[in-house]
Design a protein around this nucleic acid. Sequence first.
DNA 1: ATGGTTGCTTAGCAA
Length: 256
Amino acid sequence: MKVVSWNINSLRRRQDRLFEWLMKASPDVVCLQETKCSDDQFPEMALTAAGYRSVFHGQKSYNGVAIISRTDLLDRQASLCDEVDDPQARVIAATVSGIRIFSIYAPNGQAVGSDAFNYKLKWFDRLRSCVRQAQQKFVNVLVCGDFNVAPEDRDVHDPMLWRGAIMCSELEREAFRSLEQIGLRDTLRIHHLESGLFSWWDYRLLAFPKNRGLRIDEILASENMAARCVAAGVDREMRKGKEPSDHAPVWAEFSP
DNA sequence: ATGGTTGCTTAGCAA
């Protein structure tokens, strides 16, 4: 089973690219982030015609997440488990073949120490609690998305330049590690230890051709799923060409 | 070098 996580940076803007890629790459499950469209704008019918079911949780202009799958998506949940009424559409979960799958779009945090930054840290606490709840019910859990955290220096093109900056600060990395401490594994690192593997490149200053990027999109797997992970990678091709998202899809392959 | 690019919406914010 091939699972992909992709921050598409506007589904409406990149719908053609999405469908071409689905036909070519033929993934089993795709977690999308920053769909930036309300639920009434989501191309559910077109996806059905292409052979994909979908669950989605969007809002006007910003954020928005979805999961699309070749097989049934059960028990859709569009929240972080708690009763907090969050106006930002950043989480959706569903069950595919007995695997509980989350598509998450973590807050960016704007600047270290800002209100948005503190909201980001609290949001990670809420996410951790929510994933723990899922782990009570499911042995197989995947948490896929844009975490807006580069977990280690090897995930950063220029660690000295980014030292302590947003997405790289110690508090954010600690928040990310707290997810690993409840038994989630960063699937890319099961198969690749090298630096230079990124998932996001700024649109500015030729960042992509210079490979000046960060790895902030991850597929985290529960122990049982990690044991089944036979390959993982980044689809850099999708960052190329006309009007790409600023993120490339990251993927992980699981044996039955 | 304190710049620059894109999306959403239409002046300015978010990323």
